[in-house]
Amino acid sequence: MSPNPPARVMIIGAGPAGMSCALWLHNLGLEPGLIDSEKAPGGAMQLNFLNNNWVLGQRNMSGLEMAARFAEHIDSIGVPLLLETRPTHIALDGAGFRVTLETPEGLRSEEADAIVLATGTRYRGRELLLGLPGFARCDPGRLRYGPHCFTRLSVLASKRLLVIGGGDNALENATLALEAGARVTVATRGQFRGQARYLDRLAAAPECALHADARLTDLQSSANGLTATLEGAAGRWQIEVDRVHLLAGYAPNSGFLDATLGQGLAAPERDAAGYLVVDAQGRCSTPGFYAAGDVGNPAFPNILSALAQGAQVAKTIESDFKNASRT
């Protein structure tokens, strides 16, 4: 009796979670394949412009440099990687799946015994301001969103900056801008929830004003930049700024599933914010689907947890198929 062939696993998303999962699946003797809609692997690491001091052993490397190192590892072990590729249809096919892919060369069909969703998150940006009075007439060069707020901070010397957001990214961005010589205002709809070291530094700086429970209600072009109207418990007030940075968090890349799943294939469960709901081992509610990384991790999205979850999902898939072969 011949042994069962190794399970074929399609991993959608070639960020740290997807590449970690592919590495572990390969080492465990399964057959992984990676696809990603972008031109280069790395996911959110491609937008991490600051030097890293959080991933052990990778000190002072940017996200771009780490992404290149991860991708080189995947290439060295021969795991197939299709870039600028996205799934357009996922259908049941016997005990597995048939996936139609849109590639730069056209449509192609692939078989998979399991599917790993490692599509990560996207930063929330310009779409949040589209209905704001005056926004459409503002100079787009004076507006930055998400990770792009961290580029070319040196040009902010002696400039007036409004940062919208109250989490770690917003407070770190405000701190770096302050260190670059900017005069900074930070406003958030709720309470500040970022790290105390950033909040304490900003609160102690005379060149910084912090406004909790405040929201941006109007943004107009002015002769010297932008006029921002803020509204909060203290009423309404206006400030003149040279630039606005919007750091309003992230949303999961899970919406593509709604138009992709074929008849009879139940969509994996998602929470109210769209994050995939998984069990402790990374299984989705739909049999044969697994999730790793930020798309299923609203509590602590980062490179470290993504790498760990990718490895965990690979072990889960190996265990699930080993158990299935015994029945």
Rank of each mutant, 00 (worst) to 15 (best):
S154I: 11
G120F: 02
C149D: 10
A17V: 05
L210D: 12
M66P: 03
R215M: 08
L178R: 07
H245A: 08
P206R: 06
G262C: 12
E231D: 12
V186W: 12
Q238F: 02
G43M: 00
I12S: 06
N323P: 01
V55T: 09
A157P: 02
R201F: 12
N27W: 13
E84Y: 04
F256N: 02
L143N: 04
T185F: 06
C208E: 08
A180H: 14
A273M: 12
G33F: 15
D258A: 13
T85P: 06
A233V: 07
T185G: 01
A273T: 12
E105L: 09
A259P: 00
G255F: 14
I317C: 03
R201V: 00
I90P: 05
A251T: 07
S2Y: 13
S221Y: 06
T100A: 11
Q309Y: 10
N51V: 14
F150L: 14
L162S: 02
E318Y: 04
G146A: 15
I317M: 01
L132E: 01
V155E: 11
R108T: 14
M1D: 04
T121A: 06
L117V: 03
A299G: 06
G310V: 03
L129N: 10
L25W: 08
V241T: 09
A205K: 03
A174R: 04
G282Q: 06
V163P: 02
P252Y: 10
L64A: 09
V55M: 10
D139A: 10
A68W: 15
G94N: 11
M61A: 02
Q58E: 14
Y250T: 04
R243C: 04
D113N: 11
S221H: 10
P80I: 06
F321W: 15
C284H: 01
Y123I: 07
P140S: 08
L247T: 00
L304E: 10
D294W: 10
E172H: 07
Q46P: 01
A291Y: 06
T85D: 13
N224I: 03
P3F: 09
P301I: 07
A180D: 03
R215A: 07
T151H: 12
N27S: 12
D139W: 14
L178W: 04
D75R: 14
L50M: 06
G232A: 07
A180G: 01
L153W: 01
N60L: 15
A67Q: 14
L50T: 07
E31F: 13
L257N: 03
L261F: 09
S319P: 02
A251K: 13
A71H: 15
A311K: 13
F49R: 00
V55C: 14
F256D: 04
A299S: 15
V186H: 13
N173V: 00
S2I: 11
L50E: 13
F256R: 05
G134E: 09
I317N: 00
G293N: 13
A228D: 00
Q46T: 08
G18Q: 00
A68D: 15
A306L: 08
I317P: 02
A187E: 05
A223V: 10
G29R: 06
P104S: 03
P287T: 00
